[in-house]
Design a protein around this nucleic acid. Structure first.
Lengths: 234, 234
DNA sequence: CTTCTGTCGATTGTTGAACAGGCGAGGCAA
DNA sequence: TTGCCTCGCCTGTTCAACAATCGACAGAAG
């Protein structure tokens, strides 16, 4: 019994095994999640000792997590004063939307000129996720799916850096979402518009999609600016 | 002897004293500078213990500096393997220039439409600095002044985030400059073109300036891509 | 009563030592 | 070659300690 010569599998598209997350990374994850859940509200100070106790990791590890989150603009840091959850100002929102317009409308422009492609299938996936989450009332999931929707559009640039910067902008945006008492009214109204945008894109009506998208961004910006302004004055 | 009633000085325009840099920040500064000077070449591993010894700070402090520099994209980090000075690939250079075009040409477009202003005086300052540095053969200074030239253009957006992202892009670019054996030939040829661009801007010939700038970016990108490709193959 | 000015406790910045665990190189056997 | 084992180096993390800084409070001075 001679076995046939062993052939080796195709390794070209094997995903590289990612290293186990370190304690510092997990700490950052937990803190980040607590911010998005609203348990650490903007303005809240986060003392190192308290976090060290709560997460059961050493102060040094907490400090590393803080540095990570500070570079993500979720925390502000002042020497000898420690960190606190960041406040989003009205100016911040305007600035974020300036960049969103650049990246997202830019993606539409590329697609319209035929120099890039919007992946209608992937976009459909994100909208469907959002619609399901709406039905089940999982508003945080709606928010997440919505962010993915926009990230998918930005992917048309095929630029790792644009995607990364955009990702960070969307993370910052979530700080703005916290200004809403009910995220239902916030996210809910945009899901149907996402669906409409997808339909235009899938049907090749890119110029039409772009037009609607301009209004979409204006409305979203208005909404968030008002919420932030109100919570800022409070 | 009765003293006249004490008057208090005018404190309104006293510049706020900025906090002393912490050891971690100074460590990051030193490491960053050593990278730009070429003493820590791309690909070089930086063991924590060695840096701790050299800088005379504790390992924990070195690790904090590493986190900072990693978030600046100057170091790459792998768990249990430590950090090393980042390699810039040809794809990286293309991606960086994609964003440079977006930001810098975008600034010209805003200025042309009259929705923003390019500060010719500030731009002149940076060009003059570069010209002086060329005369004295201080090539690192030439590079720094050149970066300031471009940063000044991008300021037209009046967007803190655009300026910040751009700043980070330019820091990454310096990793590309290291691929050149003589930075003289690299920076030298662009200073006269900076001067020409300034003259166009100062005279209000914005469209003309934009045209020349497109070629400027193409040439610079070509040059750096070639250098990176060569050093990458070596 | 108001305005300054010490003082003190809490928190951050930093250190140094310690130990577990992952990684890579080298050697040895199948 | 391939597989296995060991060993040293380095990173990940902890802990305890101390100096420096900050903020609040209370008392002194006017």
């Amino acid at each position: 019994m001679v076995n046939p010569p062993r052939s080796r599998g195709d390794l070209s598209d094997l995903p590289a095994l990612q290293p186990l997350p370190t304690a510092a990374e997990r700490a950052a994850d937990v803190i980040r999640e607590n911010i998005f859940e609203g348990r650490f509200a903007p303005g809240t100070a986060l003392p190192e000792a308290a976090l060290s106790n709560a997460l059961q990791v050493s102060r040094n590890t907490v400090r590393e997590a803080f540095r990570t989150l500070t570079s993500e603009h979720l925390l502000t840091y002042e020497a000898h004063k420690g960190v606190m959850v960041r406040w989003l100002t009205v100016d911040d929102v305007h600035d974020i939307y300036r960049l969103r317009r650049m990246f997202e409308l830019g993606a539409f422009d590329l697609a319209i000129e035929g120099r890039a492609e919007l992946d209608a299938d992937e976009i459909d996936t994100t909208v469907t996720q959002a619609e399901r989450a709406v039905e089940e009332g999982l508003w945080k999931e709606v928010g997440t799916a919505n962010l993915r929707f926009h990230a998918e559009i930005v992917k048309a640039h095929r630029s790792p850096r644009i995607s990364e910067v955009f990702q960070r902008l969307m993370t910052e945006m979530r700080l703005g979402f916290l200004a809403f008492t009910d995220q239902a009214s916030l996210h809910g109204q945009f899901v149907p518009r996402n669906r409409a945008l997808h339909d235009h894109i899938a049907a090749g009506r890119l110029a039409k999609a772009r037009d609607e998208f301009v209004g979409y961004l204006d409305d979203a910006q208005d909404l968030i600016v008002k919420a932030v302004r109100k919570s800022d004055h409070g």
